[in-house]
Each structure stands twice: as C-alpha cells, then as structure tokens.
Amino acid sequence: MRKNVKVYGTPTCPFCVRAKKFLEDNNIEFENIDISTDAEKTREMVKKSNQMGVPVLDIEGEIIVGFDKDKITQALGL
C-alpha cells in the first residue's frame, strides 16, 4: 500500500538531501516541503515534531526527526 510521506527540510541541509535521495532510491513517492520559503509549514513542522531541527519525516502520521535510516525503513515497511 502506498504511504503518505512528507519531508520537511531546507535545500542546504545535508541530511535532508540524503533522506530524499534514500526515498527516491527506494521508489517512495513523497511531498517535498521546503520550509525555508514557507513560514506556515515551518510552524506546522515545529508543532508536529516539537523541535526545530531538519529533516523531519511524516510517514502516515509517524514523525521521524533526522535522517534515521532504521526508523524510516521500519515506518515504510521496506
């Protein structure tokens, strides 16, 4: 089943780039949210994750802070 995946990040953060590359390599579709140009989305991310570091992944409501390959793999059931 296709899962709803969102990645909150900035274009300059290395682990955002790597997280997105990891999803692409695994053929996972995701919504790329660039918070550097969207204050509303920044607030949304901080509210969801209760912190201010990027990347934040929202996988079907499961919030993962940072590029944590093990957690991402598990949440996606890869």
Binding site: T10, V46, Q51, M52, G53
Partner: peptide, 18 residues
C-alpha cells in the same frame, strides 16, 4: 538542542526567518 539551539546555520538557519 534542536529547540532553538543548533550547531549548523547552513541547515537550520531558515527556521529563524525574521
């Protein structure tokens, strides 16, 4: 840490717009 305190302006800077 990650609640306003950061070690990477390149990464987390944009969260502090304005």
């Amino acid at each position: 840490r990650n609640k306003g305190l950061a070690y990477c302006a390149t990464c987390d800077g944009p969260l502090f717009a304005g």
